[in-house]
Amino acid sequence: MDPVEMLLRTLAVFFTMAIFSFLWKDNMIYKFAEHLVVGISMGYWCVILYQTSFLSKMWGPLTRTLAGHPEGMPDRLVFVPIALGLLLFTRFFPKISWLARIPMAFILGVGSGVAIPLGIQASVIQQIHPTMAAFQPATWTGVGSWFNAILVLMGVVCGLAYFFFSAKHTGILGGMSKIGIWVLMIGFGASFGYTVMSRISLLYGRVNYLVFEWAGPLVRGLF
């Protein structure tokens, strides 16, 4: 293997071990690796943002428009977001800081206008439909589908009952909220199981790298 490549891999192994060293106890090498990750991520993000957004979405259209070569109307509109963006910086000047409210109002207005209807549609209305649709005779495929439909409906209603705080949780509502707690616990249990699986996958990735992409080639190269 190329010595430079091997050196880079050894560096990766060093930082992997530096991060793992936290499992023994907090130490300087871990802190160094942690700070390096944060610093590099931030630097990388800045460069990517500069290359993919500032240059292509602002500087390019701006210079083209100023040079008299606008490529279609959208380029001329570039002055609007630039002006709004610059207004955000007025927050640093107390006398004119109120101007920053204009772009903030624009951001909040557009954000809410787009997010609220689409969010309700995707996360509420379209989710209610399959909860009830399972009871349509056309969707019945046997006792199993009946059981599933009732289980899902019961889980949804009892789960919601647990979060209904306008009445005391006694009687029927109390019973439903207790079932709701069980439904939630089963949900959390499934999530926890998946989380364990995910973390083991990540550890597997690192160990696999240490053994087969670093130690293996290193041993083969040495002997």
Binding site: Q127, P130, T195
Partner: peptide, 24 residues
């Protein structure tokens, strides 16, 4: 990722997702 996968099974039933690949 497996951490996120359980959150999206309900979108399978609603047809908003036609398939789901969960984690490793």
């Amino acid at each position: 990722s497996a951490v996120m996968a359980p959150n999206y099974y309900n979108y399978l039933d609603s047809g908003q997702l036609f398939g789901l690949i969960g984690g490793l």
